[in-house]
Design a protein around this nucleic acid. Structure first.
Lengths: 192, 192
DNA sequence: GTCTATAATTCGATAGAC
DNA sequence: GTCTATCGAATTATAGAC
């Protein structure tokens, strides 16, 4: 990797960390420049605009989630194993790219039309895919006959906040152990 | 209620709805004025500053959560019934004041020091109380012997996003049914 | 790539007349 | 309470010299 890309990589790291701390609107190009020890104008060497930065990183990490769930959907896994696999790659992506996942969860509201609509459509599509797996499980009897909508909602909520465990170095958890604990929570609950 | 308070009530409704849609930083005093069909200057009849609005509503709804969980803590309920009661009042507060709950979940990052630290301390205290109930349940054997930290985290995640179901009129769910579904999810999971 | 300087806009908040 | 007018500060982004 050449010097230019190393500098851009550092720019992205600093930007994502600042956005996580102060929010997208609360992070100024000056904040980023200060962290990079350079002037505001230099930031535009790495990105066309603040909005372009948001769109680039957000759809990049979003694409990684979609790619993973698509591979699971076309697999021959059982519904339960599909759900386990979803938990697994959520934790993997989140542990490896916590600040990008945090961006995806926290900052999509800052997208502007028509890109916002495009994102919401993709987001809905992702939820539809999870719903279809749970529906399959309920229909075949391996999952309880609970409200499909709430089951999907609860399942996704249980894994949507994992980035909190990885954006803070003090909280870091072993991904393998976390995967087992979260899968057990979703499948078996907490009652003994 | 006199005319002044009716107008302030409408101001608060409009403000909270706009903040939910566009975020705190993304909502301008001019946006609020436009929705109220008045000028920017009039907005300051109802609140001293934008920051004061955030602090007032955020600590108000936060206080409601703390009051509820404190009542549960000192009750003679079993650990499982305490957790059920937590789910219950989360859903009640969320269904009755969805935009205030959304503010609490989404916008606390916009608080400024030293108030931010005060909030984070209270937030940590709330999580500690939930953790203590789960610990009691694990120790007495009524809950599975899972990682205490992850159990607390997963439990809270499962109820933290309920406001999504009530800020959108199209999604509204029967609170009583939702309460049973969420409690079952947390206690028993989704496996048949 | 880096800097200085600045354009163009937007925002929170206030003053003061009615 | 409502309005007009405006201040002062902050922000994104660009122009142009080095």
């Amino acid at each position: 990797m050449n010097v230019v890309n190393l500098k851009r990589k550092r720019f992205l790291e600093v930007s994502l960390k600042l956005i996580h701390e102060k929010g997208f609107k609360g992070t100024t190009m000056r904040d980023i420049a200060t962290q990079l020890n350079c002037d505001v104008a230099n930031v535009y060497n790495y990105v066309d605009s603040k909005q372009a930065l948001l769109e680039e990183k957000l759809f990049e990490i979003s694409g990684a989630f979609h790619e993973s769930i698509n591979n699971i959907l076309i697999s021959s896994y059982s519904p339960v194993d599909k759900l386990k696999a979803i938990v697994s790659f959520h934790i993997q992506l989140t542990s490896r790219r916590p600040f990008e996942v945090a961006l995806l969860v926290n900052e999509w509201r800052n997208l502007k039309e028509p890109i916002l609509s495009k994102f919401l459509e993709e987001k809905g599509g992702y939820e539809d895919k999870v719903r279809s797996i749970i529906k399959e499980g309920i229909n075949s009897g391996v999952l309880r006959d609970m409200d499909l909508e709430i089951a999907t909602f609860a399942m996704l909520s249980s894994i949507r906040w994992l980035h909190d465990k990885y954006t803070d170095p003090a909280k870091t958890v072993n991904p393998i152990e976390l995967e087992k604990q979260i899968s057990d929570f979703i499948l078996e609950g907490i009652r003994a």
